[in-house]
Nucleic acid binder design. Structure first.
Lengths: 142, 142
DNA sequence: CTTGCAGCTGCAAAGAGTCGCAATAAAGCG
DNA sequence: CGCTTTATTGCGACTCTTTGCAGCTGCAAG
């Protein structure tokens, strides 16, 4: 299915931006991933097809996709940012600061907060992929 | 008031760590600030008293203080991290991705989410200073 | 008061991400 | 199909932050 590419094309056209081979390759590499990827990983993946692509192009493309709401970015705590296509499987992470374990939670958990921000502040929160740090049950009891 | 130092001393003793002049200077510089500061700013402040302190000491001290829950760190989006003493004035930020404006919201807004994470997942979320990105009312209507 | 040893500090160098700029190449147009 | 405009690319330099290491120091036991 090429709907991702179509969405990209649409989004780019809408804001007067260009559909370049590099952008298509980045998006296609993203679409192949099951889970989060780093910029470095994407660089390697795209270089399989096109060895001349530059890391800053990857970053700029990712920034653009994030801005368009097509990609979610998250810092899961390791000092490296993770990127992921939005919409396929909306979720968030609880990260234990003691043991480092991460638990995935559904997007519906954040809906009440979203609603509240909307009604109280008129703010449309874009929480596509949140990382919430804290202490897990096991570590608190141990 | 020296309660910050007492808290620090207590916390350090508990985990077998040391109370060094550098750490005291960093904490004291933090305590003088009204609002967020960057590591670089802290470096300048501490160097007023002790010109030999190293930037990595600042970062390591901040990491430690964050781990102990005394300091909150936030990336407000500018690529530079902001640090702030916890407890004085718990708050969070809504940041508009269009116009860049930030709005401060009270900590109580996040309490329902905290409660939910606690009851559903046994997870004690540490959301000391959140940055929530999205689109503000003005930008959505304009 | 001295000593031993974690735990710190400062330094230098590596990682991660960003920026400015000249060259390139999409898209639209005739 | 070639031309023009202008966004985008690739590159190198730069910023912010982390890490490895060698030497130093707080602190508690002797």
């Amino acid at each position: 299915m090429s709907s991702d590419l179509e969405v990209l094309q649409e989004a780019l056209r809408g804001s007067g931006q260009r559909l370049t081979p590099q952008r298509m390759m980045v998006l296609s590499a993203l679409a192949e991933q099951e889970s989060h990827v780093t910029a470095e990983t994407l660089l390697d993946l795209v270089r399989l097809d096109y060895p001349y692509i530059n890391l800053s192009t990857i970053y700029r493309t990712l920034d653009l996709l994030v801005e368009l709401g097509l990609v979610a970015e998250t810092d899961l705590g390791g000092g490296v940012r993770q990127f992921e296509l939005v919409g396929t499987h909306p979720h968030h992470h609880l990260i234990c600061q003691r043991c480092g374990q991460t638990v995935e939670i559904g997007d519906d958990t954040l809906q009440p907060l979203r609603d509240r921000l909307q009604s109280h502040y008129g703010f449309e929160a874009r929480m596509d992929h949140f990382a919430i740090f804290g202490v897990c049950k096991a570590c608190r009891e141990g």
